[in-house]
């Protein structure tokens, strides 16, 4: 081989072919593959792994075309999450940054597996979580009197607002069906949203899932990511509603709790015409 050819090859390697490291890693992977290439089971395992990554790359291109075009992360080298390439990890981070929180809490482990993923519920887990009433929205605490018989809740309402259970009508064991109607009036809608939030029946996975259930796992596809993004945004409406209900509670605690009880028991707020429709 002439000096001139060697030199051209060297220049090509240095300046025109990108990511030598990637090509080296790929070559090593190929050697391993050749050593066991006669084995169909191994081939299927390899295909599974390659397809899993390729599906994430396809999703990356679909969701973040601009970032994909400008990305310099490796398709082969392991990233922050060691079971995935740097490029796949970049997708996880983009979803975390632009769509919804993905990489916190139980997904923070560098060895975490993301073939399917779980989300971190935003609502209180009333089943297993230690409930600290002081840290909750007061309207949410007021809503708990319909679900729990614990004296703590009424003690909290007494200490904060001077409210006593004796002052109010008895609470029915079950909510009136009207509480769950999709169509609500201007006054009853915020109350219905409160009960749905506490009941974990909003239809929004960020609000309805709890820690103690077997975690629902989500797939890496465009539809799922877009739905979760939208649902995460919509979940904010429920918390904004709590802020407004808190203001009503602070302004007239007895009136607010009376409205809650009336709506729970009768599916309407006494004296309010619109809720009866």
């Amino acid at each position: 081989m002439s000096e001139c050819t060697l030199s051209a090859s060297f220049v090509e390697t240095l300046f025109f072919r990108k990511s030598f490291g990637d090509r080296l890693l790929r070559s090593l992977e190929y050697v391993g593959f050749k050593a066991r290439s006669h084995n169909a089971v191994n081939a299927c395992e390899l295909l599974n792994r390659v397809l899993s990554e390729q599906k994430k790359y396809a999703l990356f291109r679909e969701l973040f075309q601009e970032e994909w075009n400008g990305s310099k992360t490796s398709l082969y080298r392991a990233g922050r999450y060691t079971q995935y390439s740097e490029r796949a990890c970049e997708l996880f981070e983009l979803v975390h940054e632009h769509c919804f929180p993905l990489l916190d809490y139980w997904n923070d482990d560098p060895e975490a597996e993301f073939e399917r993923f779980a989300i971190m519920p935003l609502n209180f887990d009333l089943c297993c979580e230690d409930i600290d009433l002081e840290s909750m929205r007061v309207s949410y605490v007021a809503g708990l009197i319909f679900y729990f018989q614990e004296a703590d809740i009424w003690d909290f309402l007494f200490q904060k607002y001077g409210l006593s259970q004796d002052e109010f009508a008895p609470v029915a064991n079950r909510a009136h069906p009207g509480v769950w109607k999709a169509r609500q009036g201007r006054k009853t809608k915020p109350l219905s949203m409160l009960f749905r939030l506490i009941d974990h029946s909003t239809g929004n996975p960020w609000l309805d899932l709890t820690y103690c259930e077997n975690a629902e796992m989500f797939e890496w596809d465009k539809k799922t990511i877009e739905e979760l993004t939208r649902d995460h945004h919509d979940a904010g409406n429920y918390f904004k509603n709590l802020e407004q209900l808190d203001e009503r509670m602070d302004a007239d605690p007895k009136g607010f709790v009376s409205e809650l009880i009336s709506f729970w028991n009768n599916g309407r707020i006494d004296g309010l015409q619109e809720a009866q429709n």
Binding site: Y30, F33, S37, N39, A43, L46, L47, V50
Partner: peptide
């Protein structure tokens, strides 16, 4: 699967 794996690796 063996044939496709080989293609993908190449």
């Amino acid at each position: 699967a063996i044939l496709l794996a080989d293609t993908l690796m190449r």
